[in-house]
Design a protein around this nucleic acid. Structure first.
Lengths: 167, 167
DNA sequence: CCCCGAGCGACTGATTCCGAAGATTTATCT
DNA sequence: AGATAAATCTTCGGAATCAGTCGCTCGGGG
């Protein structure tokens, strides 16, 4: 349940946003919230030199424009998902359709179309090996246009960052 | 600046956490915060049937145990990063050292050691093509033990989820 | 020149956050 | 079992924050 859109998928048919241009103040606000999503508007205001209300309005604008979203991110292992993997797919024909189909799957947390020996990369989050096996054989590989897949089972998640800063 | 740890790296030398076991209430709290990281404790309490203070204590515990973190996640394209790529690496010898070296790089947002034809997968976030090129040729490929790399430049980010729910 | 909209500061009531203290449940040890 | 210790919950009051709203200023058209 609870299908939530990702940050950057503007292919889902939602209303298009006017791509706000970020000034230095907004970038600083973003960076502060990348460290602590619950930081108070007042303390942010003190750091960037605006009033509390102005910061609040900016944050609201950034959220509505989908420039950022403030959420809890979890360690998959600690919330009951024992198997993660990256799946590389080679596709003949329209890879958009394949990407869309993958995007629609609950177990798929990440889909990107790439230039390289794989056309699409998808990260999947499964509860166990059987779950992963079923997902791969019954639902991913049969997708029309998929000519080959290669699965990279995660052994260890070394780094997982959500805050790259801003430029 | 401000190198922030990821969620799941317990290899960085930080204090070990006692891996809290999650009951249904905590899972519900997490799922609510996965939708809105700024949701008030009071409204969460109303939904899970606890007092506001109890919810606050649980959230604090979850944060300290690194089960989750509440942060702002951004759309890389909208904050000035034009080039993203997944880099697959083949490594001879100790892949832990390679993974650690990648983890230490600011441009690297994601590092995972895998079982498959690649030993390590790393996602990199760059400002432009020159930046990506420099990173690959001068800093990633020369790493000791790296025998081959393959780069998948992102054409389109289709899906990017941070909330898989809980099991 | 004037209108108009965007963005900001100031203000206020309602809500929320926060820390502490006490009560209750759960776990541990003998 | 029984007692002790640890963990977790509720209650509570004061401080801080949040969420609106209003008026002001600054620029850009018409």
């Amino acid at each position: 349940m609870t299908t939530i859109r990702g940050v950057a998928n503007n292919g889902g048919g939602t209303t298009r946003k006017p791509s706000v241009n970020l000034d230095e103040v907004s970038k600083t606000i973003i960076e502060l919230l990348q460290h602590d999503g619950r930081k108070s508007y007042a303390s942010i205001a003190a750091e960037v030199g605006l009033s509390e209300a102005a910061v609040r309005q900016r944050v609201q604008r950034l959220l509505e424009a989908d420039v950022m979203q403030i959420v809890a991110v979890t360690d998959p292992l600690q919330v009951g998902f024992q198997r993660q993997a990256m799946v590389g797919l080679r596709v003949s024909g329209d890879m958009t359709a394949v990407a869309d189909a993958l995007t629609a799957m609950d177990e798929v947390s990440y889909v990107v179309t790439t230039a390289g020996s794989f056309d699409v990369l998808a990260e999947v989050v499964c509860e166990n090996d059987n779950h992963l096996l079923e997902l791969l054989t019954s639902r991913i590989r049969p997708l029309p246009g998929v000519t080959a897949t290669e699965t990279f089972v995660y052994l260890k998640l070394n780094k997982q960052l959500y805050n790259w800063g801003t430029r």
